[in-house]
Design a protein around this nucleic acid. Structure first.
Lengths: 133, 133
DNA sequence: CTTTGTGCAAATTCTTTGCACCAAA
DNA sequence: TTTGGTGCAAAGAATTTGCACAAAG
């Protein structure tokens, strides 16, 4: 499914900017920050503003098109892969690595069956191979 | 184990402020923000500054005495319970609930056996009983 | 004494807001 | 022509930093 189709499917009106951000998220599964997205797109869309990146990502997140990651203290990070998976963050170099080891499907917590779970995110913290203590 | 013992065990020099923060974390498992801790302690320690709360919590986190929670977009939250457990956040009312459903012990990821995992945190997002969609 | 912690004020950084202009239906 | 998107500048909020003073050993 391409960027345009995804936006339409989620009732998001396409625009040059929104399509560019969506396209970026579909080709860069690097958990980018707003700044990284802005820096990458800015040359090809010279009038682009960071405000629009914020607006767009907030909209995308509300519509479930991207995931917000709270794994990084400094900046918000976003993930275009909305399937259930975890993330590892290296304490030393800051690398973020996808962890695909989780079961999909609905979740009911034994201890709290009354909670409606829309999303699950698991953050692993430690040292990557390169930084290995 | 009381506040003083915990600090000593982790090579943290005790001070009035550090003891007060530690004591607070041991009696309020509410995932407080810096502001909440400051507001609570400030009356009894009138000279207390927010900078000291930041310093103290950052130190505590480095020493593994508290956990940093990235579950809340707006503020850093901290947890005095460092045993492995998850957290649920209600999208509507913002309530954060502890989820004790995880197995303790060392973890080696099948997909990334080379990663050294120091900490695992799982964040559940959805609607609590009261806010139930 | 000497080292370390505290706390004020200022600085920094990230994110949101207000508002005028622009674009699309 | 009306609705909604964009982007600039300013505001806001959370956190960190620099530095002088205080505390503790």
């Amino acid at each position: 499914m391409d960027a345009l189709e995804i936006l339409i499917k989620h009732d998001i009106k396409p625009s040059v900017q929104r399509l560019a951000v969506m396209e970026y998220m579909l080709t860069h599964f690097t958990h980018p920050t707003v700044d990284e997205i802005y820096s990458s797109l800015s040359p090809s869309i010279p009038t682009l503003s960071k405000t629009t990146i914020y607006n767009t990502l907030n909209l995308f997140e509300e519509q479930g098109v991207v995931l917000y990651l709270g794994i990084d203290k400094k900046n918000a990070r976003f993930d275009g892969n909305t399937s259930r998976h975890g993330h590892f963050r290296c304490k030393k170099c800051g690398a973020i690595i996808d962890i695909f080891n989780e079961k999909p499907g609905n979740v009911v917590l034994k201890s709290h069956p009354e909670l409606i779970i829309d999303d699950i995110q698991t953050y692993y913290t430690g040292y990557c191979n390169a930084c290995n203590k």
